[in-house]
Nucleic acid binder design. Structure first.
Lengths: 167, 167
DNA sequence: AAAAATATATGCTCGGAGCATATACATCAA
DNA sequence: TTGATGTATATGCTCCGAGCATATATTTTT
């Protein structure tokens, strides 16, 4: 294959996979948009501040505050004051939020797994290795890492290449 | 790597790539959101109807009509009546639209290429082959194919696996 | 102690997106 | 041919998420 064709194919696949991930994740979230990512991020990093969440979601301040308002109103998340910085608001999931988070992650996993099912075990390993290498090349800052991993299932991620690259 | 880790890595990479594609594409588009995809799709398929565009973008009727209204108002696209079906509106790009389309596609290509630069030529080929196999497994309908290829540079796509799978 | 930087909250407004509906054309059945 | 159903487009209305500007609280720096 010619390089330009390869780029097209990889780009198209990335869009298709991202579509699947977001569709499946949003289906279990209380609203479309960044809510699903917000829930899984708070689940991933309990005590996350609104500002860090904002950077991970690439939203404005006010947009993030309003999103958190809605999550709190729906009983999925709770604010509490951060112990180290009294300006900051720390976020955590409620038990209902944890349930929702699990539902989002398992829906996400299911769709992805079925898309990957056409590969043999060896092909999957090879693809995963190359993907990990690409991912390591992409990570820049810690904020960016949170953004990249915004829909990851952290309990299932052994030897996360993003983490490895940052360390 | 464990399968669940591989899935996380691949999912994260897909999101990261999709972010890059959409960021670069939108930077050259007249507005954020689906406008960039709409422009490249119309460029790809001159005479495309609003209904087909709607399905490729996963929008509502009215949302698509308004989007086209805006593109026409900005001088990027034009409506003309479809020769075969007098209900339908056919779309084409204006010369200005063509210029914008090229800018979107080359910006998209540039960002993607730099993300892929960490791979050797052999790795890139291997990754592309596996991506093509995955892509063929994903394509279902023709509408879906348009959606998947919504940001592709069709002039640079030799032996498109999506096309091959549909045929 | 004052000044600058950082984190959050809120009033205001804008604009994209959907719903409901209207109109035009096509297709199929009788 | 005519009438009924389905499909394609257009538009009034409304909702709601997102950003901007601004206010307040806390931390950090000078």
């Amino acid at each position: 294959m010619i390089d330009s064709s390869i780029e097209n194919v990889i780009g198209a696949l990335a869009l298709a996979f991202a579509d699947i991930l977001q569709r499946d994740a949003q289906a279990k979230a209380p609203e479309p948009g960044p809510a699903a990512s917000a829930i899984t991020l708070i689940g991933h990093v309990p005590g996350l501040s609104i500002e860090r969440l904002r950077r991970a979601l690439s939203l404005s301040h006010s947009g993030t505050v309003r999103l958190v308002d809605r999550l709190v109103a729906e009983g999925l998340a709770a604010r509490f004051s951060a112990p180290d910085d009294h300006r900051a608001v720390a976020l955590r999931l409620t038990p209902l939020g944890e349930t929702t988070c699990s539902a989002i992650l398992s829906a996400r996993q299911k769709g992805l797994a079925s898309a990957l099912a056409v590969l043999s075990q060896e092909e999957l390993q090879e693809f995963g290795n190359l993907a990990a290498k690409l991912l390591r090349g992409l990570v820049s800052t810690e904020d960016h890492a949170y953004r990249i991993c915004r829909l990851c299932n952290y309990t299932a991620c052994i030897d996360c290449p993003v983490e490895a690259e940052l360390a």
